[in-house]
């Protein structure tokens, strides 16, 4: 609670920068002084140089585009499947009975383990990567949507019944909006997971993309490029998370809930 409040203030913001700055400085010193070979650990300045170089030559964009395409498409698919199936499972015990056992059987399979299988089925192109991202990101969205619906207070459910709100109207007017905070929390977890999965899939088998370039740079000893692409992943994750947090913040504020509830939902 106190930690969250203090990061909001200006002093808190400055404080939160101290450790990263010290680490960067230490890193640069290690690299420049020659303590660690620049092949193993190029300094932050070298990494930034590599990043700018990739940006001006257009290699960064050429690799970021396919990654983002796979990432966003897979992530969108996971929402398209995860939210409706989660809503159905949340509302109907019968649907839960049919679906949950099968889903719980699939859930422990790590997405990474399915990469070879999907490449075999869907080929080395984008389809297999999109599918694997969708698979990996599906679980938190499905689970959170289902729990969100199951947690709707009995009073609100009964009240909807008495008002004659059932069937499709119940889904759109009660279940979906009531579960929204929980769904958004699930989406945010999935967004992070989808990024991990897309990079991993590209590292295993691809001809383009950030993951592919990381492996490529590692094999050709371009360590600065390798780290530059890792920084790109971090920035993408940070931006996506920021947008989703903003959406969550708006939903929470609209219901008179504090932001600290966002943390507890995870």
């Amino acid at each position: 609670m106190r930690l969250l409040q203090s990061t909001d203030s200006r002093a808190g913001k400055i404080r939160s920068l101290i450790i990263p700055l010290v680490l960067l400085l230490g890193w640069e010193t290690l690299s420049v002084s020659g303590t660690v070979s620049s092949v193993f650990l190029p300094g932050p300045v070298a990494v930034i140089e590599a990043l700018l170089n990739q940006l001006t030559t257009g290699t960064l964009v050429a690799n970021l585009m396919p990654t983002m395409q796979r990432y966003l498409l897979g992530f969108a698919l996971s929402c398209i499947f995860g939210i409706p199936i989660g809503l159905l499972c949340g509302v109907s015990a019968r649907v839960r009975g049919y679906i949950n056992a099968a889903l719980e059987f699939l859930r422990p399979i790590p997405p990474i383990a399915l990469i070879p299988v999907l490449i075999l089925w869907l080929g080395i192109g984008d389809a297999s990567k999109v599918a694997i991202v969708a698979y990996g990101a599906f679980w938190p969205i499905w689970l959170n949507t289902m729990l969100g619906v199951q947690e709707i207070p009995v009073l609100l459910r009964r009240s909807a019944r008495v008002m004659g709100i059932h069937g499709t109207r119940y889904f759109t007017k009660v279940a979906l909006p009531a579960a929204l905070p929980k769904i958004l929390a699930g989406i945010r977890i999935s967004a992070a997971l989808a990024l991990i999965v897309v990079i991993a899939a590209e590292m295993i088998e691809a001809t383009s993309g950030i993951g592919y370039e990381i492996v490529n740079a590692e094999q050709t000893f371009h360590s600065a490029n390798m780290l530059a692409y890792i920084v790109v992943i971090s920035v993408v994750g940070y931006i996506v998370n920021g947008f989703l947090r903003l959406a969550e913040h708006r939903v929470y504020a609209g219901r008179g809930l504090s932001d600290t509830s966002i943390e507890t939902l995870e």
Partner: peptide, 11 residues
């Protein structure tokens, strides 16, 4: 039906 607790939808 009016319940004991107000059954209002918070959103």
């Amino acid at each position: 039906f009016v319940f004991q607790e107000p059954a209002l939808y918070p959103w």
